[in-house]
Amino acid sequence: MARFARADGRDGIGHRVAVVYDDATDRVKLYVDGQTGAGATADLPNGRRTSGPLQIGRARTGDGWGEYLHGDVDEVRAFAGALPDGRIP
């Protein structure tokens, strides 16, 4: 079972967060520090078509984009295809 922690603030070491979308299975998994769990998996039938660039740190709300990330992002990596469980850092 995955264990999730609150943010460290400025003095902590931070956390590695990975979101993996597998188009073949229409499944999304959330990983925190390389760990996931049943509650961190969701089905996303038919995916979502996009026409713009990848955006990090925003969420879609009822009438548009908002809910901006409150924190720092040190590094972002994007891969073509879904990484298998054993390859998530």
Rank of each mutant, 00 (worst) to 15 (best):
E75K: 10
R58P: 03
Y31F: 13
E75V: 15
P45V: 02
P53V: 01
V28F: 01
Y68W: 14
A38S: 14
T50M: 12
D8C: 00
F79K: 03
D85R: 12
D74H: 10
R27F: 01
L83G: 00
D11F: 09
G81K: 08
D74V: 11
D63P: 04
G62S: 12
G12R: 04
V32M: 11
A78S: 15
D26A: 15
A18E: 02
A24F: 09
T41L: 04
A5L: 09
G9F: 02
G64P: 00
L83A: 04
A7I: 07
V20H: 07
F4V: 14
L44E: 06
G86W: 08
R10P: 08
G64V: 03
I13E: 15
R16F: 07
N46R: 14
A5D: 11
D8W: 06
D43L: 15
T41F: 01
R77D: 11
G86H: 02
A2T: 12
W65V: 10
L69I: 02
Q55D: 07
D63W: 12
R48V: 13
R77L: 14
A5P: 01
A24V: 14
Y31I: 01
R10V: 13
T25D: 11
Y21D: 06
A78E: 03
D23L: 05
G86K: 03
G14Q: 05
D74G: 10
R87I: 07
T36K: 01
D22V: 02
A2N: 12
M1H: 11
A82S: 08
G57W: 04
A18L: 05
R6P: 00
Y31T: 03
W65E: 10
V19A: 11
A80I: 08
L44V: 10
W65A: 07
R48T: 12
T36M: 06
A18K: 00
A80S: 13
G34V: 02
D33L: 02
D74R: 12
I88N: 06
